[in-house]
Each structure stands twice: as C-alpha cells, then as structure tokens.
Computed example of a mutant assay.
Amino acid sequence: MGANEDKGGKCGTICLKYLLFTFNFLFWLAGGVVMAVGVWSLVEKSEYISLLPSKTYAASAYILVLAGAIVMVTGVLGCCATFKEQRRLLRVYFVLLLCIFLLEILSGVLAYIYYQQLNVELKLSLRETMVKKYQQVDQDHVTMAVDKLQQEFKCCGSNSTSDWADSVWIRSSKANSRFVPDSCCKSLTEGCGNRDHPSNIYKVEGGCISKLENFILDHLKIIGAVGVGIASVQVIGMVITCCLYRSLNVDTL
C-alpha cells in the first residue's frame, strides 16, 4: 500500500513538473509579448507623450516593459527550479511571480484610471500647450509633436483652427503672417499656412484633441488588457508552483 502511494506521489510530482515547465515556456513567450507591447507603446508615438498633461500613460508602458523583462528572467528560473526540484528556488520563483502579478495589475489599473481622466486633462492642457509652447525656445519636442499630430491625423488646432489665433508664435513676426502652422496644410509646403481656407488647411470638427484622445484611448485599452490578461494567467502558474512545492520531499531543501 505504501509503495503504491509513493509511486502515485512520484507520478503526481512528475506531472506537476512537466506542467510547470510547459507553463514556464509559455510564460517566457508571454513576457516577450508584454515587453514588446510596452516598448511599442513608448516608441510608436513617443512624440505625443510630450503633449500629455501627466506621465501616467508613459508610466503604464514602462511598468509593462519592466514586467516583461522580469517575466523572461523568471521563466528561465522557473525551469531550473522545476527540474532541480529545489524548494528554495521554487519559493524565489513564486515570490517573483507574485511581484510580476502586482506590477501588471498596477499597469492595468493605471491605464484604467488614465482612461477615465484623459478627456478632461486634454481639454485643459492641449490648447495651452499649442498656444504657448509651439515654436518656442527649448520646446522643439513640443513643436515636432504638434506638427506630426496635425499632419498624421489631418487636423488643425486643439479644438479648431481658430485656436491658433492666440498662439504666441502666430502673433509674432517669426510666423511671417501665417494664420496657422504649415503642418495644418493639406499639401505641406513652406509658407502654406498663410492661406486660411478649407481648401488649403484641415478643418476637422473637434480638432486634434478628439483625434489624439481616441489614439491614446486605443493604446490604453491594449496596455490594460495585456497587463490584466497576463496577470490572470499567472495565477495558474502560482497554483501549480504551490502544488509542486508541497509534493516535493522536504529532503530536497
């Protein structure tokens, strides 16, 4: 009877080992995906981050990059702990899984919070950023971001083209009598902003603020979904780790 129990216990341990190894391999791949999503969120439209009033969006993406890197290292550690059957390594592995779980939940929560407040923040800040910082000293990153935003999304001004009438740059001699920046033009040429006519410049209802908001919201949905999704899968890994830890003989310490 005892022999049968030992045999059954060993079979259960072996099954748990291979199950955890399979999980770790998939987990390692998931870490690459998480890190890739974080990097993509930062690099794909990095210029626009300078137009956002808070750093929550960037923080969410950085957390995903960090979590993804830790996940990949943890996946390797998990494989070592599994095949060496060392309870000490399994404890370290479990703690790392828990830390990653909390990081990804944090990323998802930050994305959700910023999702709720983005519209209000953009309405308060985007127009002021365009009016006060465009083409100003030491604000090249803002100028490039605004130009790219207007060209890429085919829009002009925060809410409308009339926003540019209050621009510090437009009202200065440096604008050379332009009504709007050249990046508002449908056909971008030097000085094309001198003609404020719908046939020449983009006149989009809602201006650039609605375009930027929709773009950021789409990215936040992806960040939140990836963070919470991978974190949910990790719960399975933690359960398997606990089961294997308990099934291993104390002598393996």
Rank of each mutant, 00 (worst) to 15 (best):
A225Y: 11
L51V: 04
Y62G: 09
L118C: 00
L42F: 07
Y134E: 02
C15L: 09
L26M: 14
C185M: 02
L118S: 07
Y202V: 03
V250L: 13
N249C: 12
V95R: 04
A58C: 05
G207Q: 11
N176I: 13
E5F: 14
L16R: 10
N200P: 03
V235H: 09
C79E: 07
C99N: 03
N200M: 09
R178Q: 15
P181N: 09
C156T: 00
F21K: 12
L16D: 03
L66I: 08
M238D: 13
K132E: 15
K55Y: 12
M238G: 14
S46K: 06
L126P: 07
G229E: 01
C184E: 06
H197K: 07
G227K: 06
C242P: 08
L220V: 09
D218N: 14
Y18P: 13
A61K: 05
V120D: 12
L64S: 00
S54P: 03
V95I: 15
G32D: 11
F153P: 00
T22Y: 07
L106P: 00
Y202G: 04
C15S: 12
Y62E: 02
G227V: 08
M1L: 13
S60Q: 09
R91F: 12
N176D: 15
G108R: 01
V142H: 06
M238A: 15
I222P: 04
L29M: 15
